[in-house]
Nucleic acid binder design. Structure first.
Length: 445
RNA sequence: GGCCCCAUCGUCUAACGGUUUAGGACGUCGGGUUUUCAUCCCGAAAACUUCUGGGUUCGAAUCCCAGUGGGGUCACCA
């Protein structure tokens, strides 16, 4: 019997962000998939910083990026910075000129944002045989370039008559993405390029560059765009929360964000939904990629987050709450008593204050919420507390309706109809404070 | 506008030509547990039969074509 398993080269993927700000939620997903693709097959996952546009670089962005990636458990095996590899790109560009696949251009750079801008397909400098300036790709006429996308699992092709003479090396000596990324993917022996859908239209440029540079072209796959639930368009910084750090600040857990995002654009055959990073890597299947753009709905994110919050031990949850979700100078002993009561009531860490805020400060009591017998209810409760009698006995002894009695109590103590269990809350709050709050409501006409 | 991608419940998706009266999850609604809310458990509605119209086939959500609709992209940014 012949076991014919194709001996594949080692899988090597990369995440290649530019250090221009926070980590986009879509980028996190791209990184996750690239990581899983590599790790599922025992391969390497590289982090490559594409900092070839000095103007857009944001100080500190690189460090922030790495910190965030690590929070999600996405660790890399190798690290590269393009700005430290400049000679590689310029010599590659010069080789392309020498081989007749690129040319120098001394036109002044155009700005796409300017009004009346229109891209010319064939650059006027392509036959001038200039000896200096920017270097552009000499796109051949009427040729078909194609590749098989491993996300969409289909062949995609272009006629080069629709491809413009893209700039490869800028006049400042820095490469553009079109050059740098291809040179690097080749030299770093990347086996699979996984990137956003927005790169799909410029893929023919990259195919040409790969072919002219020589060597084995990596597999290429384009991930779907994540669409805004409201607009149905790509998530935008202006309207939507798009940065991972924003979600962290809102009180979403890394496990939940990761789990949510992995199912936007990928699904297993058995429709399983709960995955840790490790489980995802184990179950990862390249056939699970989706073709259609998903929408970012918060419902499921919230559900995942609630789920993962409940998975935490009280101690772990306290540590998480310490990251900016607690009132100033929170008493830790008090907190450890409160946390078990709110754990299954919150969907986000930031919900803590709305459920447990009354433990730390007196809340305004809206009298219209109280029942018509509230004074009687509260007076008996005060009496019981003062004499140390169990509150549970009060309704029966006085002929109160149990629900009404405790509801008035709840509102007077916490200022809300929705609270943690009121008996336990009173115990935590203390007899004195509780009595004081009840009396205040009784006397405040 | 040119080029490219896409199209199953409100949302994320399963179904890879026939076990489909299209399955699951979130959300919604109803019920149970509970002194509230939440958790948890049970159940229901939900895709004018898989955007529309053609074709291929004994048979199509699944393959092909067209239309329509949605998205992306057209820089010396990535």
């Amino acid at each position: 019997m012949i076991k014919s398993k194709l001996k594949m080269d080692k899988i090597r993927t990369r995440f290649a962000p530019s250090p221009t700000g926070f980590l986009h939620i879509g980028s996190l997903r791209t990184a996750l998939y690239a990581y899983a693709l590599a790790k599922h097959n025992g391969g390497d996952f590289l982090l490559r910083i594409e900092d070839t546009d000095q103007k857009r670089e944001v100080p500190g962005a690189l460090e922030a990026l790495q910190t965030t990636l690590k929070k999600f458990g996405l660790t890399w095996d190798e690290f590269y910075t393009q700005s430290e590899r400049l000679p590689l790109y310029s010599s590659a560009a010069k080789k392309l000129v020498k081989d007749g696949h690129a040319f120098y251009c001394d036109c002044k750079p155009k700005n796409a944002k300017l009004e009346g801008f229109s891209q010319e397909l064939r650059d006027p400098c392509r036959n001038k045989s200039l000896k200096s300036g920017a270097i552009k790709l000499k796109v051949p006429d009427d040729k078909v370039v194609s590749y098989c996308d491993f996300v969409h699992k289909k062949e995609i092709s272009w006629n080069t008559d629709t491809v413009y003479d893209a700039t490869l090396l800028k006049s400042d000596g820095f490469p553009t993405y079109h050059l740098a990324a291809m040179v690097d993917d080749l030299s770093m022996k990347i086996s699979h390029i996984l990137r956003g859908h927005d790169w799909l239209p410029s893929t023919p440029i990259h195919l040409l560059v790969f072919d002219y540079l020589g060597g084995k072209r990596p597999e290429i796959g384009h991930l779907t765009d994540i669409l805004s639930a409201e607009t149905g368009k790509k998530l935008s910084k202006r309207r939507d929360s798009v940065f991972v750090e924003q979600f962290l600040d809102m009180g979403y857990l890394p496990e939940a964000i990761l789990n949510f995002v992995m199912l936007l654009g990928w699904a297993p055959k058995d429709n399983r939904e709960l995955f840790s990073l490790g489980e995802f890597v184990k179950n990862f299947d390249i056939n699970g990629f989706q073709d259609a753009n998903p929408r970012f709905f918060y419902n499921k994110l919230n559900w995942f987050n609630g789920h993962y919050i409940r998975q935490k031990t009280d101690k772990e949850l306290i540590e998480l709450l310490k990251n900016g979700f607690l009132p100033e100078n929170t008493d830790m002993e008090l907190l450890s008593k409160i946390v078990p009561l709110v754990k299954e009531r919150i969907a986000k860490l930031s919900d803590f204050s709305s459920f447990a805020g009354f433990f730390f400060e007196k809340k305004e009591v809206d009298k219209t919420l109280l029942g018509k017998n509230y004074k009687e209810h509260l007076s008996k409760a005060v009496e019981a507390l003062e004499r140390g009698i169990l509150l549970d006995k009060i309704p029966e002894e006085n002929g109160f309706k149990v629900g009404d009695f405790f509801m008035d109590l709840r509102i007077a103590i916490a200022g809300s109809k929705f609270t943690p269990p009121i008996n336990e809350s009173i115990e935590i709050l203390g007899k004195e404070e509780s009595i004081e709050r009840l009396k205040k409501v009784i006397s405040n006409n």
